[in-house]
Amino acid sequence: MTVIISDESKEKWGSALEKELLQSGTQVVHFIANAINVEPCTSCGSCGGKTFGRCVIQDDMQTVLPKIVTCRALVLVSPAVFGGVSRHIKKVMDRMMPIADPRYRVSDGEMIKGMRNQKMLYHMIGFGDKLSEAERAAFISLHKENCIIMNVKGRAFILDSNSKTDAIKKIANEVSYE
């Protein structure tokens, strides 16, 4: 099962990807980040102690987290905002701490953490109008850093507003798994 979390306030690439994946027979759960109700993380620390593994804020993340923790692949789709993701997508990302592995391990000489869903594939699609080289590089580096600390594999893609639906077909192929 693939979870898509997309910011569709400007363009609807998440829905386009969902359509392609469904056609290829993949099970998809799609959350539209700018439409669901997600509060910012308050850094209360409860998910690391008092209510280990569980967020105490009662909002739509209680529906999203169970899907992420059991999915085969997670795809975040966001306009590239200052070289990163939009506020809608970042709110969801910030609230993923309850399903991070709290322990530390060493990989490639560095300390990292990991996710409870250890085999999860993690992809990001960024899009925008005439993105500069610096913006693209920054977006890709954010995805790379996420993969390192979460100990997951995945790909980052950049879509131009000139991109045609062919591009999303290609991405659907790349993020599909056997």
Binding site: G48, G53, P98, I99, R103
Partner: peptide, 25 residues
């Protein structure tokens, strides 16, 4: 990394949880 992991596991145990059990979600 070992030290931090031990500290984290201790904190989780003190709250009555087992980090090796399946996640709440």
């Amino acid at each position: 990394s070992k030290l931090l992991t031990v500290m984290v596991e201790k904190r989780i145990k003190n709250h009555g949880y087992n980090v090796n059990e399946p996640n709440w979600y």
